[in-house]
Computed example of a mutant assay.
Amino acid sequence: MFNKIALAVAFSPTLEALICESKRLKDIFNSELLLIHVGEKSPELENILQQLLIKHGLKGNKIKTIWEKGNPAKKIIQTCKEENVDLLVAGALKTEGFFKYYIGTIARKIIRKSNCSVLMLVDPLEKPTPFDKVVINGTQQEQTHFVISKGLEWCKMDQAKQIYVVNEIKMYGFQMATAAEGGEEEVSNTRRKLVSEEVTYVENILKTIDKGDLKINIKITCGKWAVELARFAVDFKADLLIVGDEGKLGFLDRLFPHDLEDILNDLPCNLLIVKK
């Protein structure tokens, strides 16, 4: 699934945990591991990194470290492209005084402009564990089949135990369908019909995918998809949320909030953004 994984190295307090998490993924996918640091290279920093790699058994021809100078986002994106990276791993930040994780400016640029998939880890562990509880975005979008397919491929390799594909009733469709005067029973019937249609949409995708032994649940929500998806991930206590890329953002997207931003503003859990 991922032949080459890169870790964005920032020498933060979570560096060792991020290295351990990256090693876990490297072992699962049998990947090469690339470490990228944008900033000054000093003997002290080089020694810190080397000691951590040795400590966690990360020495050999499938490990490579690149030191760069310049704009962090641009250099990371450029390096990932030049090195044919499939997955970039980075840490999210917790706001001071609040149990809330957010994506900074550099990470946002990487998510938007990188060619590879991106995994944001909100609470990396030095003794990492599998992502047992996974939520996959099944909202009707151009890339939904790809997102579900790649999400389930990840779940099989990581042996996830509980999986939900979350779709939504389109609010405008529900409002239009119930706009005419009608009783409570008519509204309820309309809602059941719309829910059934969204379940069928996901089921038809699942029929085309090799699911192995995975047991997959379908959840239908009603509201703005990104908000409801994040809310469900919190309620479910998910270990990982998998979504697709919104593609290249146009001028209007930069002026007005877009759906993915609702998730990036307050991460509900670890976030994997899969890109083709």
Rank of each mutant, 00 (worst) to 15 (best):
F236N: 02
G183T: 12
F11D: 04
F146N: 03
C269W: 06
V187I: 07
D123H: 15
K133C: 07
R192C: 09
I106E: 14
F29R: 06
M176S: 12
I218S: 08
T14V: 13
F256R: 11
G151R: 07
G60D: 12
P43Y: 05
G223S: 08
G173H: 10
K237N: 14
V274K: 00
L252R: 13
L58P: 01
G173T: 12
A180Y: 04
V227W: 07
A90W: 10
E96G: 07
G183R: 06
L194H: 04
H56W: 05
C20M: 10
G151T: 07
E197G: 04
K237T: 08
K26P: 00
D262A: 04
G70A: 13
R254Y: 07
L58D: 02
K41R: 15
G138L: 13
K4L: 08
L18P: 00
G39N: 02
T190P: 11
K224P: 05
V274R: 00
G151F: 10
K161D: 04
D253Q: 10
E197M: 09
K156T: 10
K219Y: 09
N47C: 12
K207E: 15
K275T: 05
H145R: 04
M1D: 09
L45E: 11
L229R: 03
E261T: 11
A160E: 09
E186G: 12
L240R: 08
S196Y: 05
T178A: 03
C155D: 02
D262W: 14
P130H: 03
R191H: 11
L88K: 03
C20L: 07
K113G: 07
N265E: 15
K215I: 14
D27L: 12
V85L: 01
R254D: 09
S12N: 07
I136D: 00
I63H: 13
V118L: 06
G60T: 09
A92G: 14
L88D: 00
L33I: 03
I220Y: 11
N61Y: 14
K150T: 14
L45N: 13
R24F: 08
F131P: 04
A230I: 00
L272K: 01
I106V: 15
V118W: 01
E153H: 08
N270P: 08
L194C: 09
Y201H: 13
D266R: 05
P268Q: 09
F232T: 00
I220D: 04
V38N: 04
I205W: 00
K100E: 15
I110M: 07
K109H: 14
I273E: 03
L33P: 00
C222I: 15
L7S: 01
G223M: 03
A6G: 03
K64S: 13
H37T: 08
R231V: 02
E32N: 15
A180C: 08
G247V: 05
T105Q: 14
